[in-house]
Simulated assay, not measured.
Amino acid sequence: MSDVPHPYSIEVSPIAKPEGHFQWAIRRSGKLIERSDRPHRSEAKAYESAMEAIERAMKPGADGGRR
């Protein structure tokens, strides 16, 4: 899996429903900034989706004032 750019971190965890699916959470300097809104079929797919969300968050003006 790719290296997550500093100061971001990704947490991927299994969810109860639907069974066998995963969710992610992104933190910037330890503070939660975004959580997945849908289940992902694999841990790798969840991680990939989280990396895409980080790339969007890193774009200038993309954070909607969340800091």
Rank of each mutant, 00 (worst) to 15 (best):
E19R: 15
D3W: 07
E43A: 06
H40R: 05
S49V: 10
I10Y: 05
P14A: 11
Y8C: 09
G65L: 06
G30P: 06
P60R: 12
A44S: 13
M58K: 15
I33S: 00
H40F: 15
P60W: 00
A62D: 02
D37K: 13
A46V: 03
A57E: 12
R35L: 09
E19A: 15
M58T: 11
L32C: 01
A50I: 05
G65A: 07
H21Q: 10
R27A: 08
P5R: 10
E11A: 11
G30I: 00
G20C: 07
S2T: 14
M51L: 15
S13N: 09
V4M: 12
G20H: 10
H21A: 11
S36T: 07
R28D: 10
P14V: 01
I26W: 06
Q23T: 10
P14L: 09
W24K: 08
G65R: 07
D37Y: 03
I54V: 15
A46M: 05
A53Q: 12
K45F: 10
R67P: 03
P7M: 07
S42R: 01
S2G: 08
K59V: 09
S9T: 15
S13M: 08
V12I: 12
R56Q: 08
E48W: 06
L32G: 01
K17R: 04
V4H: 06
P39D: 05
K45G: 04
G61K: 05
S29W: 02
S13H: 14
P7V: 00
S42A: 06
A25W: 01
V4R: 13
A50Q: 09
R56H: 14
R41M: 04
S49C: 12
G30T: 00
G30V: 04
A46H: 06
V12N: 00
A62T: 02
A44I: 08
D63F: 09
K17C: 01
P7G: 06
A46C: 08
A53C: 14
Y8Q: 04
M58C: 14
G30L: 00
M58Y: 01
R28N: 07
F22G: 02
G20R: 12
H40T: 01
A25T: 14
R67L: 09
S9Y: 01
A16V: 14
R27G: 00
S36G: 14
F22L: 06
A25S: 09
G65K: 05
G64W: 02
R38V: 10
R66T: 10
R66C: 05
R28P: 01
R67F: 05
R56F: 08
P39M: 01
E55T: 14
R56Y: 08
I54Y: 11
G65Q: 02
H6K: 08
G61D: 03
R38Q: 12
A50K: 12
R27Y: 13
L32P: 00
S29E: 02
Q23Y: 06
